[in-house]
Write a protein that binds this DNA or RNA. Structure first.
Lengths: 165, 165
DNA sequence: GTAGTGTTACTCGGATAAATATTGTCCGAGTGACATCGG
DNA sequence: CCGATGTCACTCGGACAATATTTATCCGAGTAACACTAC
């Protein structure tokens, strides 16, 4: 039960990109600098988010990343699935069909109860993640966090964002 | 988001140990044979369960493993935590305190909102796991599964269990 | 002054190595059963 | 025949490699801005 380290970075980056105005973009280098992360590695996670349809990337000078859709329609689940992959955490290797207790296929019409229970729990987990939208997180941050922190974030985005075309 | 492979084995073993009578034990070799797993590796997971207070181990000839408490008071969460460790899946590395946006500690009195959201989802996940007891799984198996499969399991346990002392 | 064009610098993207965690294996310490020996 | 004792075989437990996954890095392809030249 472990979640990759890149998920946190991905969420923070998505949250920061919320501050962009219009269809401006922010380069990966700026995102890495703001979070003090290795730029080359952060790219991998950003690319995953592009593949997942959460971010858009623009090439060339004044290029960078921006959200592919409104922050209201991006959930934590979307980000986690994009970065970590959508495979379920628990993979049933059909242990019951192996060893001396094994029978022919006709004995296993019903799915493994253990698998069902585990998958059900994970489904609940995903629902909880899906209930939190990126806009909620940002809103809470703007309301609750130290104003200086908010100012710094906005100032950074304003200074580094690029308006393409 | 990945769950170790040993969790499945651990749950199956615990379920099989439910079939023991009295304070009999079943050796790890028998558990491994029944599930067609490498015995030496299965030991690692069994040991974790012993550390977690789910199983008891008996040394020497006619030794082996048995449940440390009734199957009604063992949940899937207990097993998962024992095998995978109790650390949360999402570890907040306090990204917000790094990089050019960082401030002194007084700016971070409230915990990171992202961390809270992720941990809350995981808490829901754990509650779902905690709601499923080992006895429920076994009962469902006895009721729903193919009778031949049940018979094989019981026969195996009866043949290999040892009554210590 | 303006439009066209070539160069340039900056961006992302994927292929490539290092580090870490997980998976799998082995050998040693402990313990109860069994056979043997004595009463 | 019964009990004590020494040996033995079987068990778990922890230390040791091999593999897979994750983390980190580098270099190349593409693109738009910029400068220069011609009109």
């Amino acid at each position: 039960m472990k979640l990759g380290d890149g998920v946190e970075a991905a969420i923070h980056c998505a949250a920061l990109l919320t501050g962009l105005q219009g269809d401006a973009t922010l380069p990966a280098a700026a995102l890495a600098e703001y979070h003090d992360l290795s730029p080359s590695y952060l790219l991998k996670h950003l690319q995953r988010m592009v593949s997942g349809g959460i971010l858009e990337s623009v090439s060339g000078p004044s290029g960078g990343y921006r959200l592919a859709r409104p922050a209201e329609s991006i959930t934590l689940l979307d980000i986690v699935l994009a970065v970590e992959g959508s495979a379920p955490a628990f993979r049933c290797s059909d242990l019951r069909k192996r060893g001396p207790g094994a029978l022919d296929a006709s004995a296993y019409l019903k799915p493994c109860g253990i698998n069902i229970a585990m998958l059900k729990a994970e489904q609940v987990y995903r629902q909880a993640l899906a209930a939190t939208r990126l806009s909620d997180l940002v809103k809470e941050f703007l309301d609750e966090a130290d104003p200086r922190s908010v100012d710094r974030g906005c100032a950074f985005v304003d200074a580094r964002q690029r308006q393409p075309r």
